[in-house]
Structures are given as C-alpha cells and as structure tokens.
Computed example of a mutant assay.
Amino acid sequence: MKVCIYGAGAVGGHLAARLSAAGQHEISVIARGPQLEAIKQRGLTVSRGDEVHSGRPDHATDDPRSLAAQDIVIVTLKAQALPDAAASIESLLAPDGVAVFATNGIPWWWHKGIDVPQTPLFPLDPNGELWNRLKDRSLGCVIYSPNEVIEPGVIRSALKDRWMLGEPDGSESERLKRVEDIFQSAGIRGVATTDLRYEIWYKLLINCGLNPVAALTRLPTPLMNKNPHIIALRKAVMLEVTDIALACGTDLRGKIDLDELCTPTKRSGSNRASMLQDVLAGRSLEHEAILGIAVVLAKEQGVSAPRCELMLGLMRGLSESMQQPAT
C-alpha cells in the first residue's frame, strides 16, 4: 500500500522511520527545511531506549503534488496548520483512501457522529475547509509517544508508545482495521478502539496539565515534577478538564491517578514537553486545540474552569509575543 506521512517532524518522523524500516509498504513523507534534506540524504533514525530504528522513505518531498495518490495519509501537522493543508490532503487521497489525523487536543472533526449540529468546529476549522473536504474520509489518532528531534533526521522517543486509532462516530470499519494492520506490521502499537473520545479526553487531561505550564515556565519536565507549587497548579487544571469531560459525556473519575499523571513512575516521559519545544524553536503553538476548545466546551456546558481560562489567556499572550519582531 502507499502510505504518506504528512509532516515528518518529531511524531511523523518517528512513524516514517519505523514504517520504512519494516519495508512492508511504499512510504512517502512530506517535510521541509533541514529535516527534509536530512531525510533525503540519510533517511530517518529513531532511538527508543536501547532500540534504534533506521529507515529511508521511498519518497521525500515538500510538494504533495509530486506524489501519487495515497491509500493512507497520516497527518501529523499541528492543529493550527491543518485548515491550510486541507485541499492538498484531499488531493493526495486515492478514491478509497483515508486520512488519519494524529494531532493533540480536541480534533476538528469533533462534531462528526454525535448528537450535535453537524458543523465545523470553530476556531479549529474556521472556514469549514477540513469539514467539507474530509469529514467522511478521516480517522482520528491519539498519540501516547513523546518524541523530540535532536538533530535533523534523528528523533529520540520513549521506549513504550501507543497509538489509539478510531472512527469519529465510534464504529468499526474496514479502513480502521487496515490502518491498524499497517501500524502493527511495523511493530508499532497501533490499537483500534470504538471509544476514541475517551482517549481524546484522557490525553487532553495530560496535555492541559503539562504543555501550557512547560511553555510558560520553560522548565523541562523533570524540573516541573520536582516543584510542588507547579504540581499543585497542574492538578487543579486537570481536575477542571475532568469536570468538562464529564459534562460532555466522558467520565474520567475513578480511572485516573493525578499523582501518576503529573509525576509518572510507570512510564518515561519527554524531557521537554512538545509545546516547550515549539516555544524554544519559535514555532506556532497549539494552545487553541488543547486549551481553547476545552474552554469553549466548558462555557457551552456551564462548567466553571477559571484556571483553564487563565492559562489560555496567558498562552494567547505568549503566542502574540512570539510573533512580534525582535527589537
């Protein structure tokens, strides 16, 4: 099968390296800058503990139009970049192809298959480009896999990872099974689920309590995990997300351990949260998908979430400051 990784940075590069190394399918990547040049010259390498996976994709480009029609397009762009890419993602798909959106936060297709008006999700899809082009051709993916590009073409990841895959409406389908099989054929723990929304809320809980705090303090995760004041703030934010999820129909109570989520002992985490990596690299931030939509849903459901609102305001200020010209 033809499989394209659209956005071969830390997460996408991880997938591309392992899928290419497995040699089961024709792998293409869309990347840019030094990362693209490194992929063309040396391929991709992922270090996971003592494991090293090296693979060279069959095609690497910054122009989606140069690729043949794809059976599966795994999109690992940040949420804020997706609307501008909607048309090129659609054009990449073969007639029965499917796009898999592996992104953080509440996804743009959130209204698909649930008892709400079937409309685009503002502000993640302000003009409805994603909804109108791709709502019937997409799967979701929740990523439990911290990754960091340590130099172009080289990615460091945790040894344990999990990629939860699902239909927006919670159904089982042939295309979902096909994507799961492709992940597993490369030794990647891809797991199909009929309750992806639970996984989305669970991951959002982690992201809301980690990424904005890391971005604002610029502290690596191990140092945050040693600061009792920061831990208390993170737990308070996460409790608010739990309340929002419950109001939206997903009960996380009794299924989570906030101490373990904040200072994990059973799993290794990234040294630097992804949003901190973006701040340090001067890249745009995905705070709207992570915090912004959580606040929107809280207001819709009448849930009090003052800490989430405060964090969102600060993140919007940080994002604005990063866009100002250097003086």
Rank of each mutant, 00 (worst) to 15 (best):
Q24K: 12
P126M: 10
L36R: 00
N127M: 15
G113I: 06
R137T: 01
S47V: 15
P83M: 10
L19R: 03
P57S: 03
R32D: 12
A87G: 04
T76H: 06
D84G: 14
K40D: 08
G49R: 13
L124A: 05
D63Q: 10
P34A: 15
L139A: 01
R56S: 09
A60I: 01
I74F: 09
Q24T: 15
L44M: 02
A99I: 11
L67C: 08
R42A: 15
T119K: 13
H25W: 10
L124E: 03
D71T: 07
D115M: 09
W131Q: 11
L124V: 01
H59E: 10
G23H: 10
R56E: 02
L93F: 11
D50Q: 14
I72H: 02
A60D: 02
I39Y: 00
V116M: 13
V46I: 06
A81W: 13
P83T: 06
S145K: 14
V29D: 01
I30Y: 02
Q41F: 00
G128S: 10
A87V: 13
R56A: 07
D136W: 11
S20T: 03
D84M: 12
H53T: 15
D136K: 05
G55E: 04
S138H: 06
I27C: 00
K135M: 06
R56M: 11
P126K: 06
L36T: 02
I89P: 08
T76R: 03
L77W: 05
N127R: 15
S47I: 14
A85G: 07
A102G: 10
P95G: 09
D50Y: 11
S54E: 12
P95W: 07
A60N: 04
G23T: 09
